[in-house]
Structure formats: structure tokens, C-alpha cells
């Protein structure tokens, strides 16, 4: 059981890092690039937006070594299946990859997924050959439906996007883990390194985050903390924790005590 053999496989592609990182909200493109590098992430999310017609020549991708990362374009800001599908088609044309993070939002205040529209979009995208990673509720029924439609993973939220509230319902995540076979990746809600470790200790295949790193007082230090937390959480899960007991169980031998 070596760490090197513990690969994450999504859509037939193999990844060593189980930390996926967003590229929004950083102070600068330089900081984005440094944080990505330090995090060790191999999959990074990006958004699809109109080119600014009077823009400067600088763009995010000028700062990122595209050979090192798998871009995971998102459909952030889409509230209907039609808009999300349209955005994915544009992303595939711009990026030449079939990977998409599908999100169809139901409400601006919570940014919770609209599961009905999400399922509709997932069905179309799978039929068009996309490798679909859907951001979804921490609801095993929705996750199973997404798996049945052919999604390459499911990405239940730990808490609302950008909230930093952590894994609010670890039992729901456990139920999802016990009932779907595709990789389960906690997407959204992580605030600190311990949250990421908890997700991994539950047995998740990975964690996706943006604000927790970009919004930290020191994003580069937090990128490193998250990298280590995901590795530690994964190892802890694989090592198999001790059962919880209500009463003490001495670590030192009772034999040979003086007196």
C-alpha cells in the first residue's frame, strides 16, 4: 500500500494529487500560478467568460503551464440546463478537452444546485461525449442518478460555495460513498486544512476548493496546508482509524508498575 500506487482515476485519466483547486479570487495572476504550484494540484478549474474587447493582453492562461494541469472548465453562473450545456460546448472548443465541472445553480443567495436542471444537463453532456463532474447536493439519490447517467464523478458540496463552513453533514457524505462507485469529490465548503482532512478521512476521492486558499490571509501558505491535509487525510483513511470508545484504554503496559 504505497502512496505512489494510490492514483485517482477520473474519466480514464490518472492523477496523483487528490486536491483540485480553483483559479478565481486571487490577488494577481502571479499569485494564482504560485498557489497552484504549491498546492500540487493537477486539476484546476476555470470559468468561461466573454473576452473583454478592450482588454489588455494579459490573461490567466499566460501564467499557467498548460502541460502541467488538466483544465476543468466550470459552468458557474448558469441557472438553466441550456446555459450550462452551451457553456460546456464553448469550453470544449476553447480548451480541447472533454472535462467539465457542471454546475447548475438554483438560487443566487445559497448557490445550491438546481438538481432537476443539473440532471437534464448531465444527460445531454454525457451523450455528447463530455467527461462530466457535477457539483451537486450532498444527497445520495441525486448522486446515484448522476452516476447512472454516466457522470465520471460526483461532487457533493460540503457546505455552500465560499462559506468555509466545512463538511456540515459528514453522514450524508458517508452514505454517498457507500452507494456510488464513481469517485466522490467534496466540492465547496472547505474553510481550513482540517476540513479537507475530514473529507479525505471519510473516504472521498478528492477535494475541490477555491476560496479557502485564495481568500486566506496567506494564500500560498494555505495552498501548502491544503496539500498536506489532503495527503494526510487520505493516508489516515487508508491506514484505518481506531474505533471510537467512550472510556480510556491505557497506552502504557500495566505489567511491571512499581510499588
Amino acid at each position: 500500500m504505497t502512496e505512489s500506487a494510490d492514483k485517482l482515476i477520473i474519466g480514464g485519466r490518472e492523477f496523483s494529487s487528490r486536491l483540485m483547486v480553483g483559479t478565481g479570487k486571487y490577488a494577481s495572476f502571479e499569485q494564482t500560478a504560485r498557489a497552484l504550484e504549491i498546492s500540487g494540484a493537477e486539476i484546476i478549474t476555470v470559468a468561461v467568460r466573454r473576452v473583454n474587447l478592450d482588454r489588455s493582453k494579459e490573461s490567466l492562461l499566460d501564467y499557467i503551464d498548460l502541460k502541467k494541469y488538466t483544465l476543468l472548465p466550470n459552468t458557474a453562473g448558469c441557472y438553466t440546463a441550456d446555459d450550462a450545456v452551451r457553456t460546456c460546448r464553448l469550453a470544449r472548443e476553447a480548451g480541447m478537452s472533454d472535462f467539465v465541472k457542471l454546475e447548475v445553480l438554483g438560487d443566487e443567495k445559497t448557490l445550491f444546485p438546481d438538481n432537476e436542471e443539473l440532471l437534464k444537463a448531465a444527460k445531454i453532456l454525457v451523450s455528447e461525449g463530455f467527461t462530466v463532474l457535477p457539483y451537486c447536493s450532498d444527497d445520495v439519490i441525486v448522486c446515484k442518478k448522476l452516476e447512472d447517467l454516466g457522470c465520471a464523478a460526483v461532487m457533493p458540496l460540503g457546505a455552500p460555495i465560499g462559506s468555509g463552513l466545512g463538511i456540515r453533514n459528514p453522514y450524508n457524505i458517508r452514505i454517498i460513498l457507500e452507494n456510488v462507485r464513481v469517485p466522490v469529490i467534496v466540492d465547496a465548503g472547505v474553510g481550513s486544512a482540517s476540513d479537507a482532512a475530514i473529507a479525505m478521512e471519510l473516504g472521498c476521492a478528492g477535494v475541490l476548493m477555491n476560496t479557502a486558499i485564495a481568500g486566506a490571509q496567506d494564500p500560498l501558505a494555505m495552498a501548502e496546508a491544503m496539500k498536506l491535509a489532503v495527503i494526510a487525510g487520505r493516508l489516515s483513511f487508508r491506514a484505518g482509524r481506531i474505533p471510537r470508545k467512550l472510556y480510556a484504554n491505557a497506552s502504557s503496559p500495566l505489567d511491571g508498575l512499581i510499588g
Binding site: V46, S59, L60, A94, G95, L208, M209, N210
Partner: peptide, 10 residues
């Protein structure tokens, strides 16, 4: 006509 590209996002 829409011309789009990738920008930072989660």
C-alpha cells in the same frame, strides 16, 4: 457573435 475564453474561477 460571442467570443469567450477561460478566466479564473472555481
Amino acid at each position: 457573435i460571442e467570443i469567450v475564453h477561460f478566466v479564473g474561477g472555481g
